[in-house]
Computed example of a mutant assay.
Amino acid sequence: MKRLLHGMVGALVLAGTALAATPAHAATVEYVALGDSMASGPLIPDITGPIGCGRSTHNYAHELADALNADLRDVTCSGARTKHMTEGQSTSVGGVDTGTVPPQFDALTASTTLVTLTIGGNDVGLVGVAEDCVNLDPTATPCKGEFEAEVAQKTRDLGPKLGAVLDGIRARSPKARIVVTGYGLYIKQNGCWPFQPVLPTDANFLQGAVNAMNDVIRVQANAHGATYIDLVTPSAGHDGCQSASKRWIEGYVPLNPAAPLHPNARGEAAYAGIIGSALGA
């Protein structure tokens, strides 16, 4: 009997030691989402935050936060540029002023453990160029010659700006894992004129410009200790030339609730899954 009692006491002591060594719950992920409209998800229901930012409850940050059970501070905002990480941003809807939002870096703290960043498209001005390249005349001169040099220069200029942003994140949130996304596949090789009204040459120019910008983003992420997420490769078959049920990014005339030339809810959810996989979520 004594031997049995000693055995039971020993087992209880070992069990108690194991329980004491195991945290009651995993540490909460303190997640800050930074970025522009590709990250904010304009016109995807439901809206949250400042109306001028076009921030959706189904953007990739919200989807990822749900998967991670994270404490999310989402400050993504349509129209944001690299300078709006440290400067306030004036917002508007349909040309009507909707006020100024604080610098996105205000959301960062020393206890932040995860940061996602999608930025650069507005610095390079790609949406505006894509809008100017609309052409319903198959015999017209492609727009590539008009914009190629300007886009290339702005893409080069993005590098040091993005590097400074990444250094700024690290300085404010030294414990955080920083994840930087590229931009997705907007239009397939040679396009799909007139379904998407850009000439084949211009379709390749526009997606090529996105790819070149992604290269800059990747180089800066790697140089500054961040994780780069490629969104072009997994987007194959989900560009704006595809049907409403397959596309992740809308074309010039959306077939799903989303802004033109921006991800829809399916795309944002896919991006969240891709980022989550990279994080081992």
Results as ranks from 00 to 15, higher is better:
Gly10Ile: 08
Ala176Val: 14
Gly251Gln: 00
Phe147Lys: 04
Pro260Leu: 02
Val29Gly: 12
Val9Cys: 14
Leu43Tyr: 07
Glu30Met: 02
Val115Cys: 13
His84Val: 03
Ala24Gly: 09
Pro42Lys: 08
Val115Arg: 09
Ser277Ile: 07
Ala21Leu: 15
Glu268Met: 12
Ala278Leu: 04
Asp36His: 14
Met85Ser: 02
Thr98Glu: 13
Pro234Thr: 00
Ile217Pro: 11
Pro138Asp: 06
Ile249Cys: 08
Asp132Arg: 05
Thr100Ala: 14
Ala226Trp: 07
Asp106Tyr: 02
Ser277Thr: 15
Ala259Ser: 12
Pro138Trp: 07
Arg3Phe: 06
Leu279Tyr: 07
Gly240His: 13
Gly54Gln: 11
Leu72Pro: 03
Gly54Leu: 04
His262Met: 09
Ala171Lys: 10
Glu146Asp: 09
Lys246Gly: 13
Pro160Phe: 06
Phe105Lys: 05
Ser90Glu: 01
Tyr228Lys: 05
Glu63Thr: 11
Ala265Pro: 01
Ser277Val: 10
Ala27Val: 03
Asp66Gln: 08
Asp230Arg: 07
Ala265Gln: 06
Asp71Glu: 04
Asp36Gly: 13
Leu166Asp: 00
Gly182Met: 01
Cys241Val: 08
Arg177Pro: 13
Tyr60Ile: 10
Leu162Phe: 03
Leu68Glu: 04
Gly99Val: 11
Gly10Ser: 02
Lys83Cys: 00
Thr113Ile: 09
Leu206Tyr: 03
His58Lys: 05
Gln104Lys: 11
Met8Asp: 11
Ala226Lys: 09
Ala18Trp: 14
Thr17Cys: 08
Ser243Cys: 01
Gly145Tyr: 06
Ala24Trp: 00
Pro200Ile: 13
His84Arg: 04
Pro138Ile: 07
Ala221Ile: 05
Asn204Pro: 11
Thr118Ile: 11
Asp137Val: 10
Thr112Phe: 04
Ala27Ser: 02
Ala70Thr: 03
Val75Ile: 11
Arg247Gln: 05
Met1Trp: 10
Gly10Arg: 15
Gly168Val: 09
Asp46Gln: 14
Ala26Lys: 13
Ala278Asn: 11
Leu64Phe: 00
Thr112Gly: 09
Gly125Cys: 14
Asn222Cys: 10
Leu206Glu: 05
Asn59Leu: 01
Ala18Ile: 03
His62Cys: 06
Asn222Asp: 15
Gly10Lys: 11
Gln189Val: 12
Val232Arg: 05
Gly168Trp: 10
Pro197Lys: 06
Ile169Pro: 03
Ala65Trp: 00
Glu131Ile: 15
Ser56Val: 02
Val124Asn: 10
Gln189Glu: 06
Ile217Tyr: 15
Ile217Asp: 09
Gly41Trp: 05
Cys241Leu: 02
Val127Gln: 03
Pro50Asp: 09
Lys154Gly: 03
Leu117Met: 06
Asn214Ala: 03
Gln104Asn: 11
Asp132His: 15
